[in-house]
C-alpha cells in the first residue's frame, strides 16, 4: 500500500495503480476519452490531465498513464488543469463537432467558444477502436496508417479485410462517430444544448472548495468569473 495525496487528502493506493485508477477508486470524476478499463492505457486524448508536485514545481501529466509512487501529491481540479482540459475539448470539438460525447464534455466544462477551424471529421485519433479490435476482439483488422496530418485509421489497402468479422466493436466504443449531436447548430459551433449547467455558487476560487466538484456535479467555483453566468 502506498500513501498518496489527492486534492490535499491522504489516501491509500495499491502499487501498480495509475493516478486515474486511484482517483476513480475514491470516486473522483476525471474525464477521459481514450481510456477504457478493458484496454491498455494510451494517454492520447489528454483529457485526464492532472497536476502533480508541490509548490512552484508542478507539472501536468496524463493520469491514465502515470503510475503512482509513495508520497505523490496530485491535484485533479486546479485552475491550470481545467484550462488545459478546456483547451483539449475545444481542439477536439473543432475536429469532430458532430460528436455528442464531445459536445457534452464541452457543456460540462463550460467550453463556450471554439476558436479553431471546423474540420468536421469523425475521428479524434483516440485509438480506442484499434485497441478494441486487437486486444478484446483479437482481430487486428484496423490500424493507424500514414503520419502527421495524413494519419488515419483503416484496414490494409482500405479494403474489406479477412480479419474483420464485422463485429462492430470499433463503432461501439468510438466516442466520436457513433452518437451524433442533435443540437440545432451542432455542426457549426458549440452546441451547449443538452448539459447546460446553471452555476450554483457565486464565488470563484483558484481550486475546488467543495465535494460537489469532486463528484462531477458542479464546478462553478473553479470556473473563470467571466464564464459563470
Amino acid at each position: 500500500m502506498l500513501t498518496i495525496y489527492i486534492n490535499n487528502t491522504e489516501v491509500q493506493a495499491e502499487e501498480g495503480w495509475t493516478i486515474l485508477d486511484a482517483a476513480q477508486f475514491y470516486g473522483l470524476a476525471i474525464p477521459t476519452l481514450c481510456h477504457n478499463p478493458g484496454l491498455s492505457n494510451y494517454g492520447g486524448c489528454r483529457l485526464c490531465l492532472v497536476e502533480i508536485g508541490e509548490g512552484k514545481y508542478t507539472k501536468l501529466v496524463s493520469s491514465c498513464t502515470y503510475p503512482i509512487g509513495e508520497g505523490l501529491v496530485v491535484h485533479t481540479d486546479t485552475k491550470r488543469v481545467l484550462e488545459a482540459r478546456r483547451m483539449m475539448i475545444e481542439l477536439m470539438l473543432s475536429t469532430a463537432p458532430g460528436s455528442k460525447v464531445i459536445q457534452d464534455l464541452a457543456s460540462l466544462y463550460g467550453v463556450k467558444q471554439m476558436r479553431f477551424k471546423i474540420r468536421n471529421e469523425e475521428c479524434i485519433y483516440c485509438g480506442l477502436c484499434v485497441r478494441m479490435c486487437e486486444e478484446q476482439m483479437d482481430a487486428k483488422a484496423i490500424g493507424f496508417q500514414n503520419r502527421g496530418f495524413k494519419r488515419k485509421i483503416s484496414t490494409p489497402f482500405d479494403e474489406r479485410s479477412y480479419e474483420c468479422r464485422l463485429c462492430g466493436a470499433c463503432m461501439y466504443i468510438c466516442p466520436a462517430c457513433a452518437l451524433r449531436c442533435q443540437g440545432p447548430d451542432a455542426d457549426t459551433a458549440v452546441c451547449n444544448a443538452c448539459l447546460n449547467l446553471d452555476p450554483t455558487c457565486v464565488e470563484v476560487y483558484d481550486e475546488l472548495q467543495c465535494w460537489m466538484y469532486d463528484a462531477g456535479q458542479c464546478g462553478t467555483c473553479v470556473k473563470k468569473p467571466s464564464d459563470a453566468k
Binding site: A141, I142, G143, Q145, N146, R147, P156, F157, S161, E163
Partner: peptide, 25 residues
C-alpha cells in the same frame, strides 16, 4: 508489392495492419 507484403506477413507472423502501418509511416 502487395503480394510480397502478404507473404511477408505470413512468414514473420506479423499482422498486415502492423506492416501497412510501418510501410505508410
Amino acid at each position: 508489392p502487395r503480394r510480397a507484403l502478404l507473404v511477408l506477413s505470413q512468414m514473420i507472423k506479423t499482422s498486415m495492419v502492423d506492416i501497412i502501418g510501418v510501410a505508410t509511416f
